[in-house]
Design a protein around this nucleic acid. Structure first.
Lengths: 210, 210, 210, 210
DNA sequence: TATGAATGAGGGTTCATTCAT
DNA sequence: AATGAATGAACCCTCATTCAT
């Protein structure tokens, strides 16, 4: 059900891609309460085609999330490879998540909701693991550079991104500005002046998320 | 449809309260995909009674959100009245939102979804305005105290709370720790060392949220 | 889901009865491939009403089978009580199954298909047990009277009835005459002249069917 | 659509045969609720191929029934030719129907359901006529031998076989033993002691079935 | 006023059938 | 000729909402 390779006929692959893209849009609009019929209609195909490609609703959601994770993971790897410091890499990644990657980021964040079934997919698992490893390395380097407080982990970054990137539905245009609030969070990750108490709770291990 | 006053017969009011409380529980369990039948059953009344009290599904959700907003607003007023500094008040309010107010906070955050229809209800409007005024005052005082960066508003605080408090569904037990991440956000609100760039975007005016 | 008692409102009970009766007809026409929508339409109610009374398709089938089993069991008890010999009771029961009970008999026979789920219903279990006990007694008595061959059991009678009563779909009118073939079977149950070999296979114990 | 002759390319004929054989198996497993996709998949061809060979679902079912009728008819002719008496031929035929021919018998019995459309196919018509003629001859001879009651016809035998051979779905393993009950029926065809009343109803003329 | 029965639109899913490759 | 992708009607079932009791 996750055929993406060249095994698919050209038109079938086009349809599949159209479906995933349409699903992303519809989901962004309607949230999890989207309807497969609507996706099919707006993609210009019959419902049957949706079911030929995706065994069920869940599978379609997974496919969207998978594509998003791919982009996010690629972006993280690029930031790590091309930036000179851990902090710069982290800042670039978070920045891109909030602007260029916004939609992708929102959706993969949103679909953390499907965590259980996502976990089942091998490629998804691999992607999440890889993403967590990159984030952990970025955070560690930035901590050694003295640029990030020592009591956070890559997992914290992932979860904070997920929290902030999800859309706040119902807000009037322009109010839902995740970039702005990501910047606040980024500053919250800086080393703290002595006065403030350390973070409560337990830092999430990357294995728990990846 | 939102009669809460003494105009209601005693048993009718009891039913109404039971329904709102049950709805809160059911919504917390099932998310937005809860069913009115289940609420009615678990409240021990017929569906008809739900409709006598709440014109439709939306109205019930609003009623729950309203009660939550009331608690949140009361908490903010108490923090403002009882704490010596704006920063202490802000910290206390955010802290309570993450612990004591957690459920209420999550729900009201969740129901930001119903923002448009919530706006219609006069009491809700009043509550939100009042909450926003308190938050704005807290932030202003804390900024004058030099405890909070100058480029944020009470609206930023409200939105950041909403973002962080919403549950991250699908996480394994213990991973979804909003208190921890509220602490990061709180630190992000502190005045920043000169190096970091100012927040991007536009500060939300309290009127846009209240 | 099997409320038949007085707990049901009068109109609700009327609807329930109409639904079971309609279902019996539709099933007789279409076989197991009948549609709930058609049952609802022909009963003059909405689909929702079907689902309010019967948790699912299976439950409706069970309800039909249950009513049929009730009639069949009652008929067997009457035959046993009112006929002077085991053979007469057996002959009367089989005869009634083929004429008066025809439809009921066919359906309960047909719905042996749902054996597994039917087994789950306590009343159904009780009815089938009771029916098997009566049949076993009839056969035993008739065997002692020398009227029935000694190598058959009440279970054989039940299975033979089930086989012969099911409709032979597609036959032109008048060709599907189960009464005629029940008479052949009844004669086949008579003690056999010495020459013929005994029945092959193993006699079914009544416990296996009841 | 029923090309079986040499007009078909070798691979096409192989496909056709594979499809009929697979269909028989799948139908035996799933009953009438089988799906063409499953047949195609298990036969190792595309659905399109099914439709190239069989105009629709019905036609495939007919093809299966046809092959079965062929076997049954051949078996009847062999019994008639090789047995010394009409009774022996009849007994052998019925016995083989219950053992060797069991599956074929069940299926053709099952597909009496498709009687109407079967009637349309010329080969099927010819086969059924031929089978009925053989059965009528067997019964007549056996009646002249004094081995079979005078009030039954070949059509009765055909219908009784159809009734008894159809599977009783839902029975636990071993309970559905058609051989045993065919033996009862065979005994029921014997001449009856004077006491019993003659068969009710009207003997089916072979023309009505063939 | 409270109850819960009835309604029917709508969503998920399957599958016979058609058609582009 | 074979393949399997696409289509869409039909079915099961749920649930918000209305209405008779």
């Amino acid at each position: 059900m996750n055929e993406t390779g060249p095994g698919l006929r050209a038109d079938a692959r086009r349809n599949r891609e159209k479906l995933v893209a349409t699903a992303r849009t519809v989901i962004a609009e309607r949230g999890t309460a989207f309807s497969l019929d609507e996706v099919a209609r707006r993609a210009g195909v019959g419902v049957g085609t949706v079911y030929r490609r995706f065994s069920d609703r869940e599978a379609l959601v997974q496919a969207v999330a998978l594509e998003d994770f791919r982009r996010v993971a690629a972006c993280a790897r690029a930031a790590e490879a091309e930036e000179g410091t851990g902090w710069d890499a982290l800042r670039r990644f978070v920045g891109e998540a909030g602007s260029d990657l916004l939609l992708a980021g929102r959706l993969s964040a949103w679909f953390v909701a499907a965590w259980d079934s996502l976990r089942a997919d091998p490629e998804n698992l691999r992607l999440r693991r890889s993403l967590m490893e990159v984030l952990d390395r970025m955070v560690s380097r930035a901590q050694q550079e003295g640029a990030v407080r020592r009591d956070v982990t890559g997992g914290d970054v992932a979860l904070l991104l997920a929290r902030v990137l999800r859309p706040l539905p119902g807000l009037s245009e322009g109010l839902d500005d995740p970039e702005r609030h990501l910047a606040v969070v980024l500053d919250g990750l800086r080393p703290v002046p002595a006065a403030d108490p350390p973070l409560p709770g337990r830092p999430p291990a990357s294995g728990e998320l990846g």
